[in-house]
Amino acid sequence: MPAPELTDVTLTVNGVQHEITVEPRRLLSDALRHDLGLTGTHVGCEHGVCGACTVLVDGKPTRACLMFAVAAQDYAITTVEGLTRPDGSLSPVQQAFKDCHGLQCGFCTPGFLTTVAAGIEENPDPTEDEARDMIAGNLCRCTGYQNIVASVLRAAELQAGESEESA
């Protein structure tokens, strides 16, 4: 069997450029976890259904398991690690999930955090129905979702409070 083709890939993740050499079949989710050591991004189903691997691609929630690393070079990628403030403090979404018990085992949580971070940028004042719609593409086997919905609403509140303070 011929040696697999390898290719140089430059990924911009959480504002930092990384050079890696991988096969074209390397999924973005695996590149983040195995090549960059950013294990905050979780992998559940690996076919787009569970949402655990969701990262932001140019700010938009995207499945990292449904992109090849080699095809992700033109974009700015944000993982759950990148949601945390530079001083290490929690972002409104992270704080809200902590406050409202929006997680139990935490497996699904990185995908929810990235999805909701982008969601409340787009809709800063969601209704409860809109909060449910925002997270409809993510699965959680533990919480029963009630506390996640509460976390979305709380995250929007925290974010609004912050932007008032800074205004």
Binding site: H47, G48, R63, L66, M67, A71
Partner: peptide, 27 residues
């Protein structure tokens, strides 16, 4: 041809499809 990959990549990952060369049209 690879476009959004939202149908193709699951098929490749589950090995229901295979391909010798992927031509990515996103550029």
């Amino acid at each position: 041809i690879g476009a959004g990959g939202q149908s193709l990549i699951p098929l490749l990952s589950m090995r229901l499809a295979s391909v010798a060369e992927l031509i990515d049209i996103n550029g």
